[in-house]
Every structure is written in structure tokens, then in C-alpha cells.
């Protein structure tokens, strides 16, 4: 499944958070979405999921807006903010409601809980979860509908090294299964080891859209390449 952005633009008052992004995110690889804090990554992802309305342009999934899917979880799994869960609800109940909303059988909830290693804490209130457990619950939700597209916003933020390794492996595995994996990060080192393909933005504008190898070629590291690419554009 393909994610297409067509001249996608979002302004918040005087701030242009996303500025005319025109791109395609393809299946079968991990597409890293790289840019400094405030570059517009989260806003772009929110527009893909129909949470923010674009000022102009469109974001489409296989040619259709997210909101046009009746059971979107079967198409797109997403993790934007791990803390977007009611703290008083248990992780399992959160997922049960989520499954019910998209006609996903309840047994799938226990499968994904098992897959993310949260079975033991599933019946505890999510407010008591650590950052890493919250992130795992979010990932469980993203996998619930077994979707061909997975969108993750800064998934390694606040995770311990084990968690980081785990998410990295998970994303590589999902892409290897032929899914579209779109993951944002402001961490160059993370993108260097996770992504096959990079989309780099700064101040809402596209800076680069190329395979990782191509971007790094001729530089000592992604970091060097990145600073050369973004020279001037990211300074505020």
C-alpha cells in the first residue's frame, strides 16, 4: 500500500509547519522521516491520519484519504503519542475497545499483547506503565489490525537500549514482510541503522528523498551528509 502526499501544506497562524510536501512512500522498506524538532514530521503524520486538516493539498493511502476507510486499522497501524491512552484504563481494555471498533476479533488482542511482551501488565491500568511499556502498548495497537502500512512517530523516544533494539528489529521485520513502514525521528544515528530510504525535511520543506546509501555516499556518516544537506535550512 502506497502513501501519497500531494502538495501537502499546513499552516498554524503565521507558522507554516508543512510546506508543499509532494512525495510517495512505498511498501517493502523502512522509510525514515528525518528532520530536527519542529520540522513538521508529526504534523505531516497527523494529516495522513486525518487528525489535522491540511491547509491545502492531500494525503492519500492507495489513492484514498484515511477518513474514507470504514475500518482503517486493517489498512494502517499508527503510533503517534504513546500517552494517548486513558490512564485509568488497562492496556488490554484499551485494545479491546480498539479491536471492537474495527471488527477485529478479541483473541487478536491477546496475540499482539504477547507479541510486544506486555501480557503480564495487560490488566494493569495504563497510567502505571513506564515509558517503555506505554510505547509497547502503542505498538501493540499499531499491529492490531495486521495492517499493510505502519506509521510510527519517534517510536524510540525514551526507550532503553533493549527497547530500541526491539523496535528496530520489528520495523525491519515489517518491511521485510512487504509492508509500508514510515517512521519519524530526529536521531540521525537511529535512522542510519533502521531506514532503507530517507525523507529529510526542514521547516516543513522537502530537503531530500533518496535511498539511505545514496544520501550517505561520499560522506563519512549520515551525520556528515545530513549537515551538508541541511546547511542553512534548519537554523532558525
Amino acid at each position: 500500500m502506497l502513501i501519497t502526499l500531494e502538495k501537502l501544506t499546513k499552516r498554524f497562524g503565521p507558522v507554516t509547519a508543512v510546506d508543499g510536501l509532494d512525495l510517495e512512500i512505498r511498501p517493502g522498506r523502512v522509510t525514515g522521516f528525518l528532520g530536527p524538532n519542529g520540522a513538521g514530521k508529526s504534523t505531516t503524520m497527523r494529516m495522513i491520519l486525518g487528525l489535522d486538516r491540511p491547509t491545502s493539498g492531500r494525503a492519500l493511502l492507495n489513492g484514498r484519504p484515511y477518513c474514507s476507510y470504514g475500518k482503517p486499522l486493517l489498512k494502517v497501524g499508527s503510533l503517534l503519542e504513546a500517552k494517548a491512552v486513558h490512564p485509568g484504563r488497562t492496556g488490554r481494555n484499551h485494545l479491546l475497545a480498539m479491536a471492537r471498533s474495527n471488527g477485529i476479533p478479541a483473541r487478536r488482542v491477546d496475540e499482539v499483547l504477547e507479541a510486544v511482551g506486555l501480557t503480564g501488565a495487560a490488566r494493569k491500568r495504563s497510567g502505571s506503565y513506564s515509558m517503555g511499556m506505554g510505547q509497547r502498548l502503542g505498538i501493540a495497537g499499531a499491529l492490531l489490525g495486521d495492517p499493510p502500512v505502519v506509521i510510527l512517530d519517534e517510536p524510540v523516544n525514551g526507550l532503553d537500549p533493549d527497547g530500541v533494539r526491539w523496535i528496530r528489529g520489528l520495523m525491519r521485520g515489517l518491511a521485510a514482510e512487504g509492508r509500508t513502514v514510515f517512521v519519524s525521528s530526529h536521531l540521525l544515528s537511529e535512522m542510519q541503522v533502521t531506514a532503507d530510504h530517507l525523507i529529510v525535511i526542514g521547516r516543513g520543506r522537502l530537503i531530500a528523498d533518496a535511498p539511505l546509501d545514496e544520501i550517505v555516499a561520499g560522506h563519512a556518516s549520515l551525520e556528515d551528509a545530513y549537515y551538508q544537506l541541511t546547511e542553512g535550512t534548519t537554523l532558525r
Binding site: L49, C67, S78, P87
Partner: peptide, 17 residues
């Protein structure tokens, strides 16, 4: 409570209408 806990973003990603 959807808005005060931030759950609304999750909820709308399940039920986009």
C-alpha cells in the same frame, strides 16, 4: 476526557468519522 487525556487522537484513528 478524550481531550484532557489525549485519547481523542487514538480514538479518531480507529473511528475516523
Amino acid at each position: 476526557s478524550e481531550f484532557s487525556t489525549g485519547t481523542i487522537r487514538a480514538t479518531l484513528s480507529w473511528i475516523p468519522s
